[in-house]
Design a protein around this nucleic acid. Sequence first.
RNA 1: CGGGGUGUGGCGCAGUCUGGUUAGCGCGCCUCGUUCGGGACGAGGAGGACGAAGGUUCGAAUCCUUUCACCCCGACCA
Length: 572
Amino acid sequence: MRFSRYLIPTTKEAPSDAVLPSHIYLIRGGFIQSVGAGLYNFLPLGKRVLDRVRDVVKEELDKAGCLEVDLAFVTPAELWKESGRFEKYGKELLRFTDRKENEFVLGPTHEEMMVNLVRQSVKSYKQLPLNLYQIKTKFRDEIRPRFGLMRGREFLMKDGYSFHKDEADMKREFDHMEATYSRIFTRLGLDFRVVEADSGAIGGTGSKEFMVLAESGEDTLVVCEGCDYGANIEAAVRKPAEGPRYEEGEAPEMTRGKFHTPGVKTIEDLARFFRIDPFHLVKAVAKKALYDEGREEIVVFFLRGSDELQETKAANAVDANELIDVTEEELRAAGLVPGFIGIEGLPEGIRYVIDRELAGNDTLIAGANEADYHMVGVSIPAEGEPFADLVAVREGDRCAKCGGKLRYTKGIEVGHIFQLGTRYSEPLGATFLDENGKARPFVMGTYGIGVSRLLAAIIEQHHDERGCIWTRESAPFDLEIIVSNIANDAEREAAETLYHALRERGVEVLLDDRKERFGFKINDFELIGIPWGVVVGKKIADGTMELIRRDGLERTEIPADRAIEEILGRIG
RNA sequence: CGGGGUGUGGCGCAGUCUGGUUAGCGCGCCUCGUUCGGGACGAGGAGGACGAAGGUUCGAAUCCUUUCACCCCGACCA
């Protein structure tokens, strides 16, 4: 490909709203063009990268036995009503009607469509297992699209769905997909981590996320320094916290009783008041839980004074769609006393959940549900109460698996695999006949990869202050030839010869034959980030060219008459 | 949706507070010439009617009203 005939509108400046390197360089390098909030056009260069990434995904999936399909993008609302998601999905789902006033949605994900496809064509256990996928544009009317390709409203996603006769086979496929995904991200040159993820909202029994490690990641991950444990903060678990160490006879003892604690409302105040470690205090966090059809309820979460509430865990514990803050007025209206909420004496009908780590504890101080009073010597039974894991794991906590030290890191979610079970097959009546001729719902798994997001993730992880550095399998071209001065016949001819020779050997080459100065071209090369460059310049008079490795910008002189072998040998 | 902000040639901005020549600058673009290994220089040129609608005024990019779009900070997700 000749640069002079290609459309690569590079710019010196980036739009002022671009913050992330991936966003800035993808725009400045002429890969993409913004057309509205979360909407992008892919220009020729961007399209090339997208296709290459897509190819890697497709190749590995096909090798893994998955079958590619292509489902309608505009989907009948009927299916969504059947699964119950038409109402539940919220405003992210773009709904519209056609000229006959029939309702449709633009697919944000395709569980319903795929289940529909399968229930119409698969009738017997003999046809199972089956893993179907598509790589297709999705539309989610995101509340806040941002960061370029990182979080668009329209984006390219690979979504796959597997169908099984039983749980065990679904789990087998789940592991198989984990391995397949790992191969895909490895081929793309990404430093990633597979972590435990929250699976509450969508339902199902287990899920894992593939996180590309990058400072700019939107997710906080908890990883262990001692073993391979890693989890999204929303799903991270830890070894139960140990209390402070006390000398012989120094451990706090509590005589049960109600204490006058005027104005002592916060954990800090309480710890100071009783001169005790917050570990022994019970923190009450009240939230308003939102459910389907506008139903809402105040819920109180109890955990150690030394811990923080993890909202996703809390929402899952009460099956809420969302938790929002409550005002003191609302608390009072519900009969609660802000600042003095405790487990004992909680007003009738108030729903509460206790953090599992508190189970069986008896040296605790909690609110007395009465203004200016706390209960000392509170004990919590080991069972019988509504317990759940509610704590936000913190840096320095101990790993539940090996006891090692846990720390935070940031990640970009590029893949997510889910054990779905019968969550969709059941409501949609998708069944098959088993060995005994009995109808049973398909046991499903679902697997996603953010293909367009991958481009952003690759650049987030592979760039320098000059521009993009594409990895081998994601690069739009394998190599770029830069003709220093196109007006110089010797340079031009040598470059042309090399260009044709490399192309004949299957190398994807971009020949910068533009009538521009050297500095201009080399800057574009560095911005665009093709992994290798060859400068054909005035050194051609001495029979040498220069090979540049984009990653590190290391230069090597190579003899012009052996250029092809040298290049093929190095770029592999 | 809550809070903050911005809309002026393709891109980045100034001008707006304090209405008043022909709306300005840098980059980019076109033509010619000189240059040619790190975003060259000179000369000439094209391109906007100031997000939109309404209003105030002799006069509006500038003041008022409404509206739309986009961006930043929070809850969602590949």
